[in-house]
């Protein structure tokens, strides 16, 4: 049995680490204090809010990798819709507490990045004016398709629908994810790769035991696994 109240002390230790750390590691501070910086190094649009409809500030280079704001969708390649990880299973839509996610499933399947036939989201909208950044969608996603973005300057001149992010706004490459949250992305990719190799090993063992079409299948999947590892590195 654990010590009574130890959970509270654990939490207090975490907050205390944050408290002390914020004095010694300036990169922990996600606050965007423009007054720290000289005139030239301000982000391009700082203090200059969007004038045209649909235009949004998209500078995320100044936040730290401890910052999380709203969800984004991951894809693996250069052509977003071909390599989208989301298969429109709608788990995130149903577990979202404020119900800010809207998904429409595609009618036909399409090849995903590993060459498997999958459904894909025909529409994927997140209303960030409703989203409360709880990360439950990230936790429930079995495909690692939705993660948190740190983009924060989302102001828009359009009150109606301006904060409704569509698929095009949400889709970000895995490389971008590595750029904004390096540690988390590396851990996630490692886990995906591990799971994949474990699955393969299991499948291989099963296939060898059955002695059925072992070579072709194993060959195809090892290739895919290698690709995955390259991305992780």
């Amino acid at each position: 049995m654990t010590l009574l109240g130890s959970g509270i002390f654990k939490g207090m230790a975490v907050t205390f680490r944050n408290f002390v750390g914020s004095y010694f590691h300036r990169e922990r501070l996600p606050t965007n204090d423009y007054s720290w910086r000289t005139e030239g190094s301000l982000p391009q649009h700082a203090g200059d809010y969007p004038k045209e409809e649909g235009e949004q500030l998209r500078d995320t280079t100044t936040v730290t990798n401890y910052s999380r704001n709203f969800p984004m969708l991951l894809h693996d390649g250069s052509e977003p819709m071909d390599t989208i990880r989301c298969v429109a299973c709608q788990i995130c839509e149903r577990s979202c507490p404020p119900q800010c996610i809207y998904i429409e499933k595609s009618t036909e399947k399409k090849e995903d990045s590993s060459g498997k036939m999958q459904f894909y989201p025909a529409t994927f909208d997140i209303d960030v004016s409703v989203c409360m950044s709880c990360q439950i969608c990230v936790e429930v996603c079995p495909f690692d398709a939705i993660v948190m973005n740190s983009q924060f300057e989302l102001s828009t001149p359009n009150r109606f629908g301006g904060l409704l992010l569509h698929q095009g706004d949400l889709l970000k490459s895995n490389d971008y994810y590595h750029k904004i949250h390096p540690e988390e992305a590396a851990a996630r990719d490692k886990r995906i790769a591990d799971e994949k190799t474990a699955k393969e090993a299991k499948k291989k063992a099963a296939a060898e035991a059955a002695k059925k079409k072992a070579e072709a299948k194993a060959g195809a999947e090892t290739e895919a696994g290698d690709e995955k590892k390259e991305v992780a590195e």
Partner: peptide
């Protein structure tokens, strides 16, 4: 101040 520092703010 303390709450801000706990939340990694200034």
């Amino acid at each position: 101040k303390a709450l801000a520092r706990i939340q990694n703010r200034i």
